[in-house]
Write a protein that binds this DNA or RNA. Structure first.
Length: 563
RNA sequence: GCGCCUUUAACUCAGCUGGAUAGAGUAACUGCCUUCUAAGCAGUAAGCCAUUGGUUCGAAUCCAAUAAGGCGCGCCA
């Protein structure tokens, strides 16, 4: 669990503070509160490995030009015995620090030592997070938004685990309420249509062919047995038949997409155990409700929401929000998770402040609920918006998408952009097996390394006993840049976890692959000038393979050894 | 009307926790395989970072307004 970047940065912070202390004690500068300064990694490597703006932010309180302060500080810097070698003053007053060569060997060694664990951190302190994602209605197949939500949610869960959180993946099954009634109606009509003429589907029913298939399957088993019974009996029988099939299909399809949930939480359990009614009672007791037109309303505006909303309709049936409130209450109070994260489509964003208002009214800390809003995906094919599946000609679902493109491509592409960005998905590019396709570009780097390693191990080159001193001879810019990037993985994991942004990791792998291809082109391993160099370069390749594997594993994307 | 999101090269997008000359990929043009996988690399060309103001030593990045586009605003979920 080492993080060489953080070690260096922390040490640098101390070096700078010490220098400032000396300047104060010898009277060169007055004792002023030091403005918060940054230590950053410059984009341009000629500006050093680290840089600080301390001289610039101190210019005002010390009433001195920044470059003058930078000079004073740099005279007092003590680098002996640290990871740093020298400093330069540049630009408007930046102080640039250059690491000693040994640091890079230590960073490389850390990857080789920690292997599959390299990149993991303990930042999360094992806090318990419940991550809910997809939660598609069990009344039909999953759409393209579910495909994006699945990829984002599942990869985010892995990243949070790598950052030291205790994560559970959960699917909320909406197996109660109005959409199940609608499901029942649709099934009922399709079933009766088999035996009677002149029955029309209501306009708001589910029109999909899956409903017809269910009705047929049901009729094959039970025949016309349910034609003459009461509507209630018929509907129950149909739902009991079709719903488990749909839920099983969701589970199977998601498994194909490499998503396996820890929990499938059923909405119906909240109705059955009385939690839904309890929520209404609790809100009533707290005086947060009122009656209007025969319905029970929640005073959401008292808790920061944009408008009040109905909890219980005038017909006595709660609206969908009540089970949702009960569900989140269950996550945060009953089950006591430290954090609940929901991944939702942008069309649901308006509902978040209302849910949070209700939780606040119930005395739950609403900050424990974080919602990731995903913007809509636009599928493109031949430069035009694609609405229909290439094969079936019907609306594109998660399943038909995966018939068209690989699982690796889907998972990678959906994590290529931040969740909260409008996003154009190029189907042509995703199927293309070429350099233009970033997922192949990254996998190709991995396959290249594997082939290289097997060639050299056949030659008898052994890196199991490689020493720090032997690694020190790597000094080409391409080698140094590779090591620097690998050293940054733990920080990237932490940042991706903190900002709930898996796209950090896909971008990281692309950058790593780029740096490797550049190295590969510039530095031959097989024909290295000396045996020592060959060995050191092979160790570098092994480390890159490990880091690629660790980051692609986080995304659940395959690492082919041959392509 | 109100709220959320977006606007950076011809196209798709990085860069957004303020920093030094704004980056990639595609498309266009030029090179590099008798040598570890050319699914690769190197190079050329391409920009009023939507507009206008503000904060700052310093703004693509933060704030405000404007414009264009996407999504919401139900006794649907």
């Amino acid at each position: 669990m080492s993080n060489l970047i953080k070690l260096a940065s922390d040490e640098l912070n101390e070096i700078i503070l010490n220098a400032l202390g000396r300047l104060v004690s010898d009277g060169s500068i007055s004792l002023e509160p030091i403005s918060p300064f940054n230590i950053e990694i410059p984009a341009d490597k000629s500006h050093g490995d680290f840089a600080t703006n301390v001289a610039m932010v101190c210019a005002k309180p010390f009433k001195m030009p920044p470059r003058k302060i930078a000079e004073l500080i740099s005279e007092q810097l003590v680098l002996d015995g640290t990871m740093f070698e020298h400093v330069e003053i540049a630009g408007p007053g930046f102080i640039n620090f250059f690491l000693g060569r040994r640091w890079f060997s230590l960073a490389l060694q850390a990857v080789l030592d920690e292997k599959g664990n390299y990149g993991k951190t303990d930042t999360g302190e094992n806090k318990r997070i419940l991550l809910e994602f997809v939660s598609a209605n069990p009344t039909g197949p999953m759409h393209i938004g579910n495909a994006r939500g699945g990829a984002i949610g599942d990869c985010l869960a892995s990243i949070l685990q790598s950052a030291g959180y205790n994560v559970e993946r959960e699917f909320y099954v909406n197996d109660a309420g109005n959409q199940i009634e609608k499901f029942a109606t649709s099934l009922e009509v399709r079933y009766l249509q088999i035996y009677k003429a002149g029955i029309e589907m209501p306009e708001d029913a589910y029109q999909g062919e899956d409903i017809i298939a269910h009705a047929k399957g049901f009729a094959e088993i039970y025949g016309d047995k349910y034609v003459e019974v009461s509507s209630e009996e018929r509907r129950n029988a149909l739902v009991d038949y079709a719903l488990p099939k749909n839920i099983q299909a969701l589970e199977d399809d998601l498994k194909k997409y490499r998503i396996v949930y820890d929990n499938w939480f059923r909405e119906s359990t909240l109705h059955e155990n009385g939690d839904v009614d309890k929520i209404v009672e609790l809100l009533k007791e707290k005086g947060c409700t009122y009656e209007l037109d025969g319905a029970i309303w929640f005073r959401a505006t008292d808790f920061g929401a944009d408008k009040d909303f109905v909890l219980v309709r005038s017909n006595g049936i709660p609206t969908y929000v009540v089970p949702d409130i009960a569900y989140h209450y269950n996550k945060l109070v009953t089950r006591g998770f430290d954090k609940a994260i929901d991944v939702l489509g942008a069309d649901h964003h308006g509902y978040v402040p209302r849910l949070k208002a209700a939780l606040t009214a119930l005395g739950v800390d609403a900050n424990k609920l974080d919602v990731i809003i995903m913007q809509m995906v636009r599928l493109m094919r031949n430069g035009e918006v694609a609405k229909l599946s290439k094969r079936s000609g019907k609306a594109i679902t998660l399943v038909t998408l995966l018939e068209e493109i690989s699982i690796d491509a889907a998972r990678f592409y959906f994590n290529l952009r931040e969740a909260n960005s409008h996003f154009e998905f190029d189907l042509d590019l995703a199927v293309e097996k070429s350099s233009q396709n970033p997922v192949y570009y990254v996998q190709y780097a991995h396959a290249r390394i594997c082939s290289l390693i097997s060639n050299l191990s056949a030659e008898g080159v052994d890196i199991s006993d490689v020493s720090l001193a032997q690694l020190d001879i790597l000094d080409k810019p391409q080698e140094i840049e590779l090591i620097r990037h690998m050293a940054n993985l733990p920080n990237e994991v932490d940042f991706a976890a903190k900002s709930y942004d898996p796209s950090r990791i896909t971008k990281y792998t692309i950058e790593l692959a780029t740096l490797f291809h550049k190295f590969y082109d510039a530095c031959s391993v097989k024909n290295a000038e000396t045996e020592e160099l060959k060995k050191a370069r092979l160790a570098l390749c092994e480390a890159v393979r490990q880091v690629l594997r660790n980051s692609l594993t986080m995304l659940k994307i395959e690492c082919p050894e041959k392509m």
